[in-house]
Amino acid sequence: MIKRQLHDKVYWLGAIDWDRRLFDSLIPLPDGTSYNAYLVQGSDKTALLDTVDPAMAEMFLAQLADVPRIDYLVCHHAEQDHSGTIPLVLDRYPDAKVVTTAKAKTFLIDLLQIDEQRFITVADGDSLDLGGATLNFIHTPWVHWPETMVTYLAEAKILFSCDFFGSHIATSDLFVTDQGRVHEAAKRYFAEIMMPFRTVIGKNIEKLAPLAIEMIAPSHGQVYDHPEWIIDAYRDWTAGTPHNLVCLPFVSMHGSTRVMVDHLTAALMERQVRVELFNLPVTDIGKLAMSLVDAGTIVLGTPTVLTGPHPMAAYAAFLANALKPKARYLSIIGSYGWGGKTVDQLAAMIPNLKVEVLDPLLVKGHPRQDDLAQLDRLADLIVERHKKDEFRR
């Protein structure tokens, strides 16, 4: 890899991770990812903004071979895919200071054992003049950790946004060239990482609104040289009205629950409600999370295992509870053989969801005609609620 110029005296450097398919031993990466850092050279001082995942350290350090001096190493976020190579950079540049928030300083000392004397902490609104290049630091807590900040380079109108507006894509293109592909990747990234904090993220978007932003340079994915559309997308994902959409994750062991899922899906489609099905044993969890960004209603489909929900349905409930989507309604459908407390147990797993629970239906054995008629009534109720709330079509 080589440094690539973004603007006069501003360079991208980092690493493209073409092969990575899992993040945090949890998040699927179907398109790989990148770890982006940036070099800003003023007439007096030079600043490096972030580093890369330690696995890519050798590639990253090679790009600094012709950089004789780094005065400041700005750390926006302490997670190791951004910060993990800081100790190696500090070894190479013994006079460099780590510039970060007070909270991030404590994290970096704990995670990387960096000497406390190497830090400069910055308050919200502080700035550094590099000589014709002014770095303005803006605290953006909970995007997506409590210590995060972004940097605005005033002269070039570039926002270095760290995880904010990021996307997991491995590509040789420095700038966004396929907006549709990046929109999907950025939505997946938001769904998996940012959605639990969407309320405070919405406030941080408005905090950035007074800035004249002509370019957004995130820590993952491509650089936005026309950033208006991704800002608008974030506004919708954080605060927009839910869609006329039912997200339906399900699992079926012997076919009874699948019959119910298919019948409800057909009934909703007939009533002009969009449905997205996720057969949990084979589902990409990232796709499920993306559906939760927009869904007005969630329906969980599960058989009963022993006395409770199938473990995969329990995981889907746990995921929805953790991600805190803006859905307003939820229901549970499925079957059982001899008894249990599936509905009670699933309901207890979603305290973070501010939803109305609509007519759960668990049937004994294979569903009969009366059971299918109840699913039709559930479809009618979902339509009624979506129309009342004027969900987006």
Rank of each mutant, 00 (worst) to 15 (best):
T302V: 11
G339L: 09
P146M: 08
T101R: 06
L48M: 06
I298R: 02
L13G: 13
D232L: 15
L22C: 05
V74R: 09
T199L: 06
T257V: 05
F175R: 02
K387Y: 11
L128R: 00
V10Y: 08
I193L: 14
H220K: 13
T121L: 02
P54N: 11
D173A: 14
F119H: 07
I86W: 02
R385Y: 15
V261S: 00
H144T: 12
D66R: 02
A379F: 07
L323Y: 07
I231S: 07
F119N: 06
Q369I: 13
Q179V: 15
K3Q: 15
K324T: 13
R258Y: 00
K103H: 04
I382P: 04
I201R: 02
A239L: 12
V40D: 08
Q113P: 04
Y72A: 05
V150G: 04
D31R: 08
V299W: 06
T151P: 00
I216V: 08
G255N: 00
A239N: 14
E356P: 01
R377V: 14
A62P: 01
L22G: 01
L300I: 14
D370Q: 11
L130E: 00
T106L: 09
N279E: 15
R69N: 01
A348D: 02
K3D: 11
W338Q: 15
A314V: 11
R393M: 12
V293R: 12
Y11N: 08
K157E: 09
D129Y: 09
S256F: 03
W18Q: 01
A102P: 03
G340F: 04
I109R: 09
L208G: 13
L245D: 05
L361K: 00
L49S: 01
I350M: 00
L108N: 05
V357L: 11
P196I: 07
F250I: 07
K341Q: 11
G296I: 03
Q369H: 14
A62W: 03
D294W: 14
D284H: 12
W18F: 09
K388A: 12
E116F: 09
I298A: 07
G240E: 06
D232H: 14
P309S: 13
L323F: 10
K341A: 12
A123D: 06
F60P: 08
T33K: 10
R274S: 13
K203P: 04
L208N: 13
P94E: 05
D110E: 15
I158H: 10
Q41A: 15
T199Y: 02
T51P: 06
D24M: 14
I230N: 06
V383G: 08
A191C: 12
A104S: 14
H144R: 11
S127Q: 03
F137T: 03
T151W: 03
E155V: 07
M1P: 10
R118I: 08
A327Q: 02
L245F: 08
A314Y: 13
L39P: 01
